[in-house]
Simulated assay, not measured.
Amino acid sequence: MGNRLSKIYTRIGDDGTTGMADGSRLTKSDLRFDTMGVVDNLNAQIGLLQAVVNRQNNAKSDDFCQKINAQISQIQHKLFNIGGEIALPNHAEIGYVAINSDDVVTLENWIDDYNQNLPYLKEFILPAGSEATCQAHITRCLARDSERLLIKLNERDNNINQSTRQYINRLSDFLFVLARVIARLDGGTEVIWQK
């Protein structure tokens, strides 16, 4: 990256536009920036989830913490790549692939691995419990927000890779299952919705 970010402010965007990775400029109110912003927020909240899980378990050497740290690190890199895809509208033309089908399968394998030890879910659960459980649910909600905006952007521009959309969909499923795992790890139970 060199000196690319040596100056943080440029004043170029004071006119209400922002540069894309391909050199074009768009208004800051464009759907593309809304989508990038939600994906960025999801990434930041996943980083917070990692910090909360580590703090609550107070043992970074713990097997679960090591496992979740590695998974979250991988997810954060993938989300950053997705941000790159969104910022580069002509990504397909130049051969940039943020996410592929193997990335989707990885998430599916993680979901299956965690889910096999969870009891069958008979009722809806509330996004409640420990701080880490709640944070996992917040990230799940943001993954759904990201998915909706990616779909909307793709409907408009037809340039969001199918594997990217699938990845975000599976990510919300992964975060739901992870919230269930964390609830048990914290010694708590899931908060069941009272009909």
Rank of each mutant, 00 (worst) to 15 (best):
R144I: 04
E123G: 05
S146L: 03
N154S: 11
R148W: 10
L149M: 10
T164Q: 01
C134Q: 14
S163A: 15
L149A: 01
D145A: 11
R165W: 07
T164W: 00
P119E: 11
N117K: 07
T133I: 02
Y120N: 13
N161L: 06
N158F: 15
P119A: 05
Q166L: 13
F124K: 04
R144F: 09
D145V: 12
D113C: 04
L121C: 12
N159P: 15
T139H: 04
K152T: 10
P127Y: 12
Y120K: 11
A128L: 15
P127V: 08
N169A: 08
L153T: 00
D157E: 13
L118A: 08
Y120T: 15
N115D: 13
R144M: 06
A143Y: 04
R165P: 04
R156T: 11
P127N: 12
D113H: 12
T139R: 00
L150D: 01
L118N: 02
R140Y: 09
N154M: 08
T139I: 05
N154D: 15
Q116D: 12
L142H: 14
E155I: 06
E147A: 02
T139W: 01
D113S: 10
P127H: 14
H137F: 06
I168W: 02
S130V: 02
N169D: 14
S146Y: 10
G129T: 05
Q135C: 11
L142C: 05
N154T: 07
Q116S: 10
E155T: 05
K122E: 15
E131A: 14
A143H: 07
Q166R: 13
Q166N: 15
P127A: 01
C134I: 14
G129I: 00
H137T: 03
I160A: 00
N169W: 10
Q116P: 08
N154K: 06
L153H: 03
